[in-house]
Nucleic acid binder design. Structure first.
Lengths: 135, 135
DNA sequence: TATTTACCTACTATGTCAATAGGTAAATGA
DNA sequence: TCATTTACCTATTGACATAGTAGGTAAATA
């Protein structure tokens, strides 16, 4: 399951994409609009900053802004930044120990096919696809 | 992520499908072949029995057997029996409280599309697709 | 009737999730 | 210059899920 971190990260990104790209948006504002605890969002935006997906500026008049145009963000990279990995099963995670049953495993092809399905899906979805289309 | 329960359940079903359908297969045997703790497997086969996917018979000469032909099992129903639900996000679980943000949520369509993708995938995969094709 | 098998309830250690608490550092506007 | 606003940092917590274990009882058979 996609955790709150991943889902909230997506909402933060969508929120930022809906604001004037030249005005830094304070986290307080995002938290209020999205009805999410500001304290908790701090953890999430920290990851987004470290991943280079957004930029933060301190002090009065500071806040966050996107570093690219919304079309340039894939949903997958946003989710993976928070979830660590979208791998369906433990043995397909990047840091997984090599499985001793690999050669004989009858389920591995299933998980590999599923893994590709999921990753391709979230790669194909762009941040811009999630923006409000009304007016 | 798919947990060990779901993955082990699938391996139990595959194991049973590879055995003589008229001979009840003792759990001890499955545990040894699959290299999984018999004690832990007890929990899993209990669910499979309750779900009607396999049948158990007690006593000497007892064991487990499939209740249908391998083509008649969808991978989804096996996994859902152990995982509870394959829902991608909390708000799409069957027992989820109605989300107050539903009408305005910009991510809901994404999760719905993803949910359908996953469920359709595991519906389309049959137990028979996972059996060893060699010889 | 001893043995083998399924089936049952309870317990536990570990880790992850979803936050909260309580700060420091940086930038700005008055 | 200095109070205010903002980002940024480390640590802690309660609740829950995961991945098992422990120690039995009931049923069937050879």
């Amino acid at each position: 399951m996609i955790s709150t971190k991943g889902r909230y990260a997506l909402r933060v990104m969508i929120d930022l994409a809906g604001q004037d790209p030249h005005r830094p948006v304070p986290l307080k504002e995002i938290a209020e609009r999205q009805q999410i605890s500001k304290k908790y969002l701090e953890i999430i935006v920290k990851d987004l900053v470290r991943g280079g997906l957004i930029h933060g500026s301190s002090g009065k008049g500071g806040g966050y802004r996107l570093t690219r145009a919304p079309e340039e963000y894939g949903v997958r990279e946003i989710l993976e930044l928070e979830e660590g990995s979208l791998a369906a099963v433990a043995c397909l995670k990047d840091d997984a120990a090599p499985c001793p049953r690999q050669g004989e495993c009858r389920t591995l092809p299933l998980w590999q096919e599923y893994d590709k399905l999921v990753k391709d899906f979230f790669d194909s979805k762009r941040l811009s696809d999630l923006l409000d289309s009304r007016t």
